[in-house]
């Protein structure tokens, strides 16, 4: 099977994740969409690793996972902190930047 198919799949998943970030309002769902995009990127890395015949891509994908884990921890802590002060998990409610 042509490994390029994985790349097409990754592109689709990435696009879906991006749309999710834009259209969903629940901060946690937005976060999950970001995770989806990261996973799609990881899939391309693994695929390229296979195409190139070395393991560098996999190592970078591993690093991506670690960074994603950090990001989830901090991001969710931020969501909790915001929820605690505003009683809302909607990212539209945190729109004080324009003021």
């Amino acid at each position: 099977m042509n490994p390029y198919n994985y790349l097409y799949l990754a592109a689709l998943l990435f696009t879906i994740g991006a749309v999710g970030v834009v259209v969903r309002r629940n901060a946690i769902v937005v976060f999950m969409c970001i995770e989806l995009m990261l996973n799609a990127a990881n899939l391309t890395l693994v695929t390229f690793s296979r195409l190139n015949g070395n393991l560098n891509g996999q190592v970078v994908a591993f690093f991506t996972m670690v960074v994603a884990a950090c990001e989830v921890v901090v991001g969710l802590a931020i969501i909790v902190a915001i929820y605690r002060s505003r009683r809302s998990a909607s990212i539209d409610d945190a729109s004080l930047l324009k003021r």
């Binding site: 629940n26 999950m32 994603a68 884990a69 909790v80 809302s88 998990a89």
Partner: peptide
Amino acid sequence: VMMLFLFILMLVGVDAS
């Protein structure tokens, strides 16, 4: 990670979002 998400969902609950 997904367990963490579920924990936070549980903490935050549901609202209009």
